[in-house]
Design a protein around this nucleic acid. Structure first.
Lengths: 219, 219
DNA sequence: AAAAGTCTGTTGAATTTTCAACATAAGGAG
DNA sequence: CTCCTTATGTTGAAAATTCAACAGACTTTT
């Protein structure tokens, strides 16, 4: 676990907790880590929502698949980011989404009951963890607002441009990489891949953007 | 404030706090209440995100309006429900959405810094409030997941049926009321009102549902 | 009671998306 | 290096949505 200390320090769940205490605390919380290969299901829909996950290396995607087989990508998460915390904290019983490895990755899982229900005198960091969870969930809520701002647009073109402008703003530059390939971007924007590709082509011909795989430049 | 005690007791923000302490605590937090007429803007986009709101009576809607003037309804909230907590807790500076009164209502506002930053020794309930905020935000996150489950459907018909089935499940009956009129439902589902109306007509003729204004029966 | 305004449903034309199929390029496995 | 798989772009027809306009039912106002 020690080798991931730098990642853990950046994880919002452990904000304000000193290095010297962090590893001890993880032992106290019974944190377990595992490796997953690309495409492996880390947490699957309808299984108990007990664990809070932290990406130590690689990346995962939170997805939902409906009865027609259409995939929605709810979010893509990289090293230091937290997932499934909302389901564990809300204590809703079972997972309404699946989490899959987007590339080979190492994941740390913490049983949420150790954070939510253990007597708070056992370990002085529970209060801070709850505060951090609250901050993290507030941030996630805002991410969902942004996602809705994107997907509420009615045309593929507007969805794409709204998304790209947000990414450019986030990157602080009109030249940036996105974390999705074309099919994934289509599933995030909730449009057809073919329509998305053709819209990118149009925007390119109109001189509004340039793109090379996952790299985009907006003009 | 006393007259709203029953409402406040149901508010997730005040879970686990005894009646006798609740009113004292609200004074300590500097909670203020105001009346708003229908359509009045309670909190407007781009203003500072300082306050956590609680609906005491009536109802409000959280909305977002884009540069084309298209309205998206992010959520509708009734008595006892909390709003704007995510923006205040994430300390993002300014509101990315507006909150408007859906009918005449009374609203309680709490300056979030009194919860997040006041020394926790001042008032023994801060820890509990933070825990409650965390739970509330986890629940909100799950609501957004449901909303995405609905709006990720590609056709008006599928969006509508997915929404109605969730409402029926929530009501525990195939006969239930929805909190939206037609235009609002269209703005929530992110479809055209006219297309929505015609789809409801089709479903009625097919014998899949009956509807009378805001009341629906699913078969 | 009449007038004005709001809500809902309907329609048809224009626009856009979806769907299915194929072509090419790029990358990985053997 | 070649084969196989995956990712991306393109196309055209079918399907669905959007848009604008209007009519009827209901409410609210005066």
């Amino acid at each position: 676990m020690k080798k991931y200390l730098e990642i853990l320090k950046k994880c919002p769940l452990f904000d304000g907790i000193e290095d010297s205490n962090l590893l001890k605390m993880l032992v106290c919380l019974g944190a377990k880590t595992d490796f997953y290969d690309k495409k492996y299901t880390v947490l699957s829909e309808a299984t108990p929502a007990k664990y809070i996950g932290v990406v130590l290396s690689g990346s995962v995607q939170v997805i939902q698949i409906d009865y027609y087989g259409n995939r929605s990508i709810l979010s893509g998460l990289g090293a230091g980011e937290v997932f499934a915390e909302a389901f564990a904290c809300a204590e809703i019983g079972s997972m309404p989404v699946s989490v899959i490895a987007n590339e080979p990755c190492e994941i740390m899982m913490i049983d949420s009951s150790h954070i939510l229900h253990t007597c708070q005198n056992n370990c002085g960091f529970h209060q801070r963890l709850i505060y951090n969870l609250m901050k993290d969930l507030a941030t996630k809520t805002i991410m969902f607002h942004q996602r809705i701002e994107v997907t509420s647009k009615r045309t593929t073109r507007d969805k794409l441009l709204t998304y790209l402008m947000l990414q450019a703003k986030k990157a602080g530059s009109n030249s940036f990489d996105i974390p999705f390939d074309r099919q994934e971007l289509a599933d995030y924007l909730e449009v057809e891949r073919s329509g998305l590709s053709s819209e990118i082509g149009k925007l390119r011909r109109e001189g509004i953007l340039e793109s090379e795989k996952k790299h985009f430049i907006l003009y």
